[in-house]
Each structure stands twice: as structure tokens, then as C-alpha cells.
Design a protein around this nucleic acid. Structure first.
Lengths: 201, 201, 201, 201
DNA sequence: GATGAATGAGGGTTCATTCAT
DNA sequence: GATGAATGAACCCTCATTCAT
């Protein structure tokens, strides 16, 4: 005679994880990773520290969860677009749209897309994800170069520039708290980057 | 016992700050901000913890100093280029070169250029600096648009994109530990960004 | 809904305590007292933590129970032997056999026989039990001295030595995981202790 | 210009370690290892928790220190006696005297001689020391058997019995707080153990 | 009666900062 | 001015215990 049925338990788990996700994100984007202490998070969520440990093994598990939940879907979307049979230019545009759409649904992408925040194992994991996204983009850039539509520049550098610009703009948006201008961002970025990437002759 | 004269004291101050700067930078770029403890820094510099506090109010003051010393000259260089009577395109190229030259002379620029590392007052200060650089770049972009050489895009967005791309590439370099490819970076970035920015007709 | 009858409740109580005893002992002898957490015990027994608290007031009550259940029969056996009409030498031998037989049936005796593991009230209680066993042994030693079969040494010291040697050998066995050599232990101990205790005339 | 000279610093270090040793011992013997928390120890010594960490790397280092300081000299004494050119019987007596003399100078021997108190690495280390003492004793017993003065019993068992009896008596003394009877203990133990060990014919 | 989610006291540890010498 | 011993707040984590369902 469990207090909760399996279904209720699952619901509870989801509720907690949603709350943790939401508040962890808020803390991270508002004040930085350093402010995400278990005490602070528990307090913000409205439970005790101990309760947090009933849902997450340790602090790293919280970070993993936030990262996974943020970056997973986005990475999938990027890979899907990259694997589709669109034109390279269109792919890049779609990828950009995926990212910014993701951002609007969930600011936490910022963390996932921004390197250099963790250390040790965490960092490696994060880098692997970023690298994974980078790879997908590089493939598209390579396609564009092969199809002779793009200039013959280093695909790695171009991809870094692309992803880096995206990351920076997001961070800037988060910092300035101005998420309104986003519809403008995608076309602007594409205008510049595609414009600069396209063979001019 | 003979006290130090004012002149000697000033010299001492400079000596200490140079040493702190150098070692703090080494620690930060080698192992990350988290490894910059006062004990570690004092030990690396070769003084005691207490002595550090005779030159810096607290740990934040050390960070401020490192940041200031790194970012100040770069910001000056950017502003100087922006105020010169070159063409907008050339100005952007020069700015980019200044930044990457700065990076080579001093990897700690990474800290200065990378937002989101601190919290509270620190962060605001850091943002102010970034904003300052952004302004200088925006002015140049505006010039380019006014001169009808650049496309009529949001100068703010373009500047963010520019600075963001730079920041990201630097972070990437730091992560990968590959500082060699840098001569390739400036032309690639300029090719893309100027190419995309330039009016095509 | 039908409640349990008194009889059923009592049966349930026995069932639970048997299970707790068994699993607590296994945990303690396998991994040490430190591994006996309420969660671990509940999980091993197959109930929830809360249920444990329906049968035992607190963790200490569990330890008390295990100790009582282990030490009780042994103490009874010792006292029975001591009160029997055997010769002192034979009594000591029988007592030793009782102890080692008990150990084989139930390694948890180790806990009961080993002092110094707890603190506060627990400890006092444990000591009382040890003292009780000591008393029984001392009586036998006194008999032996009175019957002029044993040397005229301090009965208390002799008893301590006897019980202490037993305890130590058991601990050693537990540590080394070698329970095989036990058939050898009783004769060896008796050879030495009785040999040394016996008047040499 | 250090605040303290090297000599003063060393003195300070000794002072602290003495105090830690003393209070740690008191806590352990009075209330058990479980009560030896860093907070408790610091508080008893009269410093802050942080200060403790200036002298000991971690809690284990405190335990190591206490153990080493206690067991080291004793082990040396035992080995020295074992290696001397006395008769086996005399050696055992001397060893016993060393142990009890040590106990009087320092109750902490109790910890060192009592197995089963720690877990993990600590435990292994402790066991190694106990084993080392055991070895020394076993050698003496073997000598006695070879010289045909001792009965042909298992030297290991005899040594365990010897050391175990010692340990138990010490613990008993600590428990009962009766350290007075000790002059009586050595002869009594030797009477019994040597008496039982000696070939009777 | 059973459950297990929630709790919170407490343990080990780190490190910025102070201050007597 | 320099020193570094002392401090204590803050962190992560464990686990005995409670209580609403």
C-alpha cells in the first residue's frame, strides 16, 4: 500500500525535476554557476537540502540534468537538420532557427552552449557536446564548400565562428535581458554569415 | 629602522603588482579561476598571504586588477583604431588584429573578454567594459553603414556578432590549447564578416 | 477493513524481529556496524524505513535487540554451566565450548562480546552484560581456587584474562575470515589457561 | 621576518600536536572513536576547526598520528625484546612489561592494540601493525617451542591468545577506570600463560 | 499498519580574511 | 611592512527520524 501509485510517484518526480530545472536555470542565468549551491537551490525550490538528494545523487547530477535537458533536444534538432536533404545555406539557417527557438523555449541553452563554465569531468562532458554540435555544423559547411557555393575557408574555423557568434549573442541577450529582438537576430546573422560565406563571383 | 621612502614604496607596489598579475594570469589560464586561491597566489608569487592583503583589499581586487590591466590596453587600442581616420573595413580588421595580438601577448584577455564568469558587482563591472568595447565597434559599424559600404543591418547586432565571434574563437583556442592557427583566424573572420557586411552590389 | 487480531499482531512482530535480527547480523558481520543504516536494513529486510520504526523505537533499539538476542542465550549457557555440578576445570572448558559453539551458530556474538564499540547508554548496557558473564566465570574460578585445584591468583584478573583471550581470538577470526581453525582453538586455549591455572604441585 | 622563529614554530607544532593527542585520546577512550569529530576535537583543544586543518590534513591524519604516536614506540620495544638474547620466557615477560608500562605512560595504546575500530584503509593499516606485533611474539613462542621449553602448540594461536588477553585486560582497565591493579596484572598473566605454555614434565 | 517523501542536524573540508607579533 | 596561525562561514553530503496519506 504505497502512499503514491507508480503514476503519482512519477508525477512527483517530474514535478520536482521541473522545479529544480527551472530554479537552477534561473540561478545560473541570473547569478552564475557559482551561486548554484544545494542550499540555495533547495531553498528556491522550497524544499530542504536533504530532499534534493532524494532526487539527485549529488550536485553534479543536478548540473548534468540541467545540461542534458537543455542540450539534448537542441543537439538532436541540429543533427536532424544537418542530415536532411536541404541546401547547405538553408541548413545553416534552419540550425540557427532551431537554436534561437530553443532559447526562447528555454534559456538554459545558454549554459549548454557556453564553454568554460565547469571544470574536470563536467567540463569534458560539456566540451564533448559542444564538439558534437560543432561537428554537425562543420559537415554542413563542408557540403557548402564542396558544392562550390561557399568560399574555400577552414570549415573548422567557420563552424567555430558560427557557433561562437550564436553563443555570444545568446549570452548578450541573457545579460541584457532583451529577448525581444530575437526575430531580428536570425536574419541578421544569416545575412552576414551566409553573405560572407557565399562565393561572390 | 628606516622606513621606505615614498618612491621606494611605489616601486615596491609596482613590483608586487607585476608579480601578482603574472602569476594570477598563469594560474587562471592554466587551471581556471577556481584554482586562484589567495594561498596559491601568494605561494606562487613568493610572499605570504598576509602580504597580498597589503596590496589588494581582497580577492576581488586581485581579479579586478588582472582584468583591468588586461582589458584596459586592449580597450584603448580598440578606441584608438575606431577614432582613427581609416576606412570602416580597415578599422574592423585592425581591431581584430589588436585583439588577437593582445591575446598572444597575454592570454588573460580571455578572462576579460568572456562574460558570465562572475556575479554581483564584479559582473556589472565586467559588463560595463564589454559594453564599452561594443560601443567602439558599433561606432565603426555605423560609419560603414553611413558610408553606404555596409549593409543596413542593426549596428548593435552586428557589433555583438563581431565581438561574440571573437570571444568564442578565443575561448575555443584556450580550450583546445591550439594557439598556432591564429594567423589564419583574422583573415578568415574578416573574410566572412566583412564579406557579409559589405554591400554586394 | 479487518484489523489484525492480537495473535496475528504478535506473530507479525516475531516475523519482523526475526528478519531484522537476521539481516542486521549479516550486515554487521559482513560490513561492520557503520553499514547498518536504517535504510539499508529496511531494504534488506524488504520493508520500508517507516515500518522498521513501527517495531523498533530507534536505531539503538535495533542494536539493543540484536545484542540481547545474541548475548542472552550465551549468558544463560555460561550461567548454567557455572551452576552445574561439574568440576571447575570442566566448567571452564564447557563455557569455552559454549562460546565457540555460539560463535559458529551466530557470528554476531562477536559484537556482543566485544566492548568499546558504542558510547553513552549503549556502552554501559553492553558493559553490564560483559560484567555479568565475567561474574559467572569468576565464580567458577573461585570454586577452583577454593577446591585447591587452581593457583591462588586474583579471580577477577583470571576471569578477565579468560574472557579477554576469548574475545580477542574471536575478533581475530572475524578479521582473518578464518573460522576453520576453531576446533583447534578450544583445546589450545584450555591447555594454556588450565595448564597455567592448575596448581603445579 | 617571520612571526615565529623556526624553533618557535616547531614548538608550536609540538604544542598543538600534544594537545590534539591528549584530547583525542581522552575522547576516544571516554566515548569511542565515533565521538572524535573534528568539531569536538577542536572545541576540546580550544581552537577552531580550521586550525586543526593547519596541523592535520584530514581526520584520518589525526587518527594516524594518534595511532603512530601510541603504537610506534611500543612496537619498537616489543621487537627489541624479541630480538634480544634473553630466554623465551623472559622475553614474553619483558614484552608484557613493555606493554603495560606503555599503557601507564599513555592510555592511547588501547586504541592501537584494539582491532576492529576503523574501516577501509585505516583498518588495514591498523591490522598491519597488530600483525607486526603478533609476528614478533610468534617468533618468541617458536623459540620457546624449539628450545623444548614450551608445549608444542600452534604458535599463531598462542600469540593471538597472548596479545588478545593483553588487549582485553587493557580495555577492561580503561572501562573500569581502574589502573591501580596493574602491578598485579603482569605476574598474574605470566603465571598463567607461561605456566600453561611451559612443558610440564 | 505500511509507506517513503521530507526533514534537518551534523560531519568533513576549504578558503578568504584578520591580526598579534 | 611582512608573516602565517587562527578563524569561521559556507559548501557538499549522509542518515536517523517524522508524518501525511
Amino acid at each position: 500500500m504505497a502512499r503514491y501509485t507508480e503514476k503519482q510517484k512519477a508525477a512527483l518526480d517530474i514535478l520536482m525535476k521541473d522545479a529544480v530545472y527551472e530554479h537552477a536555470m534561473k540561478i545560473i542565468t541570473d547569478e552564475g554557476l557559482g551561486s548554484l549551491t544545494m542550499e540555495r537551490l533547495a531553498s528556491d525550490v522550497g524544499v530542504s537540502r536533504g530532499t534534493l538528494y532524494n532526487y539527485f545523487d549529488d550536485r553534479d547530477a543536478v548540473l548534468d540534468y540541467v545540461e542534458e535537458r537543455t542540450f539534448g533536444p537542441l543537439l538532436a534538432a541540429i543533427k536532424e537538420v544537418a542530415a536532411s536533404d536541404r541546401q547547405p545555406e538553408e541548413k545553416l539557417t534552419k540550425i540557427l532557427e532551431s537554436i534561437f527557438t530553443g532559447i526562447y523555449e528555454d534559456r538554459a541553452l545558454v549554459i549548454a552552449l557556453t564553454p568554460n563554465k565547469h571544470s574536470g569531468a563536467k567540463r569534458e562532458c560539456q566540451m564533448r557536446r559542444r564538439t558534437s554540435a560543432l561537428e554537425a555544423i562543420k559537415v554542413v559547411v563542408n557540403e557548402g564548400i564542396a558544392a562550390e557555393g561557399f568560399k574555400n575557408l577552414s570549415p573548422l574555423l567557420v563552424s567555430e565562428l558560427f557557433l561562437g557568434a550564436v553563443t555570444a549573442m545568446i549570452e548578450s541577450m541573457v545579460f541584457n535581458g532583451e529577448f525581444q529582438a530575437a526575430e531580428e537576430i536570425v536574419p541578421t546573422m544569416m545575412e552576414i554569415i551566409l553573405g560572407g560565406l557565399r562565393k561572390s563571383d
